[in-house]
Simulated scan of single mutants.
Amino acid sequence: MSLAAILELHGARAVVVGGGRVAARRARTLLDAGLDVHVVAPGVLPEVRALPVTCAERGYRSGDLAGAALVVAATDDAHLNDTVTAEARSLGIPVNHAGHAERGTLRFPAVARRGGVQVAVTTGRELPMLAQALTELIAPLLPDAAHLDAWAQRRDAALTVDGEARATALAGLRDDIRAHLGLPGSSA
């Protein structure tokens, strides 16, 4: 069984070992989350070099993971990916093994985003096409920023009152959110 979690790692150091297409995709994901990405690989695709990452164009060395909050092993060498994964695990660093996800401690879910809401989907198996299809199905349900802002203002206002008035205001907000999503009210 796995733990679903959203990590706030903005500004943290991430190491991507590998310089190919998978490494490029993972580096973009990490950059989008605000991480400081360091790529280690003897060969780095131009699309990786074009990203705002630090590149060490050389082979992986023990110790390259020092100070990392997150690691991605994304080479085309299964043995090297295993080596990187083992080192990260020994250091207690979450690691994604791009070749065999089950060997790592971190998997990248498919994500639907809209208006500040983020929904992550994973299948618990190696079926990324299912996770991607589910996020496509979910994305249109996500509220836009205007609705989120209005609901947040209502919640903040409700929290300034006490007792029954607070409970009534929060119940009304809950029912409005559920109605917006096409769900029955909380009392139904």
Rank of each mutant, 00 (worst) to 15 (best):
Ala4Ser: 12
Ala5Ser: 09
Ile6Trp: 11
Leu7Tyr: 12
Glu8Ile: 08
Leu9Glu: 08
Leu9Gln: 00
Ala12Trp: 00
Ala14Glu: 00
Val16Asp: 01
Val16Leu: 02
Val17Phe: 03
Gly18Ala: 11
Gly19Tyr: 00
Arg21Cys: 03
Arg21Phe: 07
Ala23Tyr: 00
Ala24Cys: 13
Ala24Arg: 04
Arg25Pro: 07
Arg26Met: 12
Arg26Ile: 06
Ala27Cys: 11
Ala27Asp: 06
Leu31His: 15
Asp32Leu: 15
Ala33Asn: 14
Gly34Leu: 15
Leu35Thr: 09
Asp36Ser: 10
Val37His: 03
His38Gly: 04
Val39Asp: 01
Val40Ala: 08
Ala41Asn: 10
Pro42Gly: 14
Gly43Phe: 10
Gly43Thr: 14
Pro46His: 14
Glu47Thr: 15
Val48Asp: 01
Val48Cys: 08
Arg49Ala: 13
Ala50Cys: 10
Thr54Arg: 15
Glu57Asn: 01
Glu57Cys: 09
Arg58Gln: 13
Arg58Gly: 15
Arg61Trp: 06
Gly63Asn: 11
Asp64Lys: 11
Asp64Ala: 15
Ala68Ser: 15
Ala69Glu: 10
Ala69Thr: 12
Leu70Phe: 12
Val71Ile: 14
Asp76Thr: 07
Asp77Pro: 02
Asp77Gly: 01
Ala78Arg: 12
Ala78Asn: 05
Leu80Met: 07
Leu80Phe: 02
Asn81Arg: 00
Asp82Arg: 05
Val84Pro: 00
Thr85Tyr: 04
Thr85Arg: 04
Glu87Ala: 03
Arg89Gln: 00
Leu91Asp: 00
Val95Gln: 04
His97Asn: 11
His97Thr: 05
Ala98Lys: 04
Gly99Lys: 06
His100Gly: 07
Ala101Glu: 10
Arg103Ile: 07
Arg103Glu: 09
Thr105Ser: 13
Leu106Ser: 06
Leu106Trp: 00
Ala110Asp: 06
Ala110Arg: 05
Ala110Ile: 08
Arg113Glu: 14
Gly115Gln: 07
Gly115Cys: 05
Gly116Arg: 09
Gln118Thr: 11
Thr122Glu: 09
Thr123Gly: 06
Gly124Cys: 09
Glu126Gly: 10
Leu127Cys: 12
Pro128Ser: 05
Pro128Val: 07
Met129Lys: 05
Met129Gln: 13
Leu130Gly: 00
Ala131Ser: 15
Ala131Gly: 13
Leu137Pro: 03
Ile138Arg: 03
Ile138Pro: 01
Ala139Tyr: 02
Leu148Ala: 07
Ala150Thr: 09
Gln153Gly: 07
Gln153Lys: 09
Arg154Lys: 13
Ala158Glu: 01
Leu159Lys: 14
Thr160Ala: 08
Glu164Asp: 15
Ala165Cys: 13
Ala167Thr: 12
Ala167Lys: 15
Ala169Asp: 12
Leu170Trp: 06
Gly172Lys: 02
Arg174Leu: 11
Asp176Pro: 01
Ala179Met: 09
His180Phe: 08
His180Glu: 06
Leu181Cys: 08
Pro184Phe: 14
Pro184Arg: 01
Ser187Ala: 09
